[in-house]
Structures are given as structure tokens and as C-alpha cells.
Amino acid sequence: MALVALACWALLAALHTRGSGLPDGHGPDAAHTAADHLAMHHAATQPAAEHTGSWLAAQGSWLLMAPAMMLPSALPAARHVALNSRWRRRQRGSAVFVATYLAVWLLFGSVVVSIAGWAHLPTGASWPLVLALVVAAGWELTAVKRRCLRGCHRTVPLPPDGWKADAACARFGLRYGWSCFGACWALMLPMALAGHASLLLMVVLTAIVVAQEGLVKGTRLGGAAALVLVVAAATVAVAA
């Protein structure tokens, strides 16, 4: 899992540095967002094939970002599955858990990227990203966020053998994914809009996710996280 996350980060960094690899020239010189992808290509005059290609590119971008950003915080839960499975089922149990967990995030990304495209967000505008960061900051201060964060630490009983074991690992992945979604959807919203063009933002948001889900005192970091997000929003707004 850690290797998968690292590989995703490496690939995203390479794409970012080269400013290529995906259609539409993501990179330092092309500050287009994932929403830009779709907004630009959603015009009625856009050929259908090109629009589909951009949509796929945005989805591909998300396909790398989701594991890169969300797998690190899930490592302890995956380790819990491995340690509490029979020796020969350790990798299988962890794989089932991770697959269902990531499915939740891939579904989220797919929906948000699609909606962003259909919403005709202005090309090159920074306000959607600023708005998303402000929303994320506000979400950090809610009781629902804290509840979901605590839910990320819950485990489910794992039967030792057979289909019951697989089903429990899948159920754990879904439950963990659902709690994690409730805690972090607002943090991932900026990335769904910004795409991998903002590698620095990815790093900052991933650090918040890992700190909150990984540290035992994570639920008490809401205020600090909100402050970081507000600063990020202000930085984006000023730089625009």
C-alpha cells in the first residue's frame, strides 16, 4: 500500500515537473484545473471525442491523486486487518479492505469531476478553488467532521476464515471509507477542482489528512487545520 501511494506521488510529481503526460498540459506553466479541463471542453462547439478525452484525463488525474492522498492515512487500518487475519490471509484481507476503501474515494472523485465539468466553471478562475478551501476550513470546525474522524478509528470484528472473512474486510473498507469520506470530503474538494496542477496544495492537504487520522489527538486539530486552509485560500486568492 505504501509503495502504491509512493508510486502515485512519484507519477504525479513527474507529470507536474514535465507539465505533460496528460492531455491539456498540466504543470507549472499550465495552471489549468481539473474543472478547467471540462469547462473548456464543454462548449457546444467542442467535438464530443475531445470532451470525452478531457473527462477521462481528469478522471485519470483523480485516479492517481486519490490513492496518493488517501492511502497513507489508511495504512494503520490496513495493518490492523493484516495483523488480525490468519497468516495466509494477511495480504488478501488487506487488499479487499483497500479496494473497497478506495472505491469510495474513486466514486467521490468521479462525481465531483463530472459535476465540475458540467457546471461550466470559468476558465482559469481561481475563485472556485478559493471557495473550496474556505468550505474545507469551515467543515473542519463542525461536530460532524469530528464524529466522522472518530469513526475512522473504529474497527469491525474480522472472522478468521472463508467468505465471512472477506465480507468483513470489505465491510470494514466501506465503513472506514464512508467515515473517511465524511471527515475529508471537503479537504479533497479543492483537489478535485485543482487537479494535480497544485502539487504543493496536495502536500498540504495530505499532511492535514494524515495528521488528523493518524494522530491520536487528531480530533483536536480542527482549529489548526482550518487556519492552514484559510491561509491557503488567501494565498491562492492573492496569487491569482
Binding site: 495483523l83 497468516w87 472472522p159 478468521p160 476464515d161
Partner: peptide, 24 residues
């Protein structure tokens, strides 16, 4: 070396104030 699971129950048990026994 890591601890290894060698056996476990496969369904939850409810304790309601009486003696309860499980086998696996």
C-alpha cells in the same frame, strides 16, 4: 516475530449478565 492469529470466533457474542461460553 509478529503475533499470529491461530483462531477466532466468527460471530459476535452478547453478554447479558449470565455465564456465557464460546468455542473456536
Amino acid at each position: 516475530r509478529p503475533p499470529e492469529l491461530v483462531g477466532a470466533t466468527d460471530q459476535p457474542l452478547e453478554l447479558t449478565g449470565d455465564r456465557a461460553t464460546v468455542r473456536f
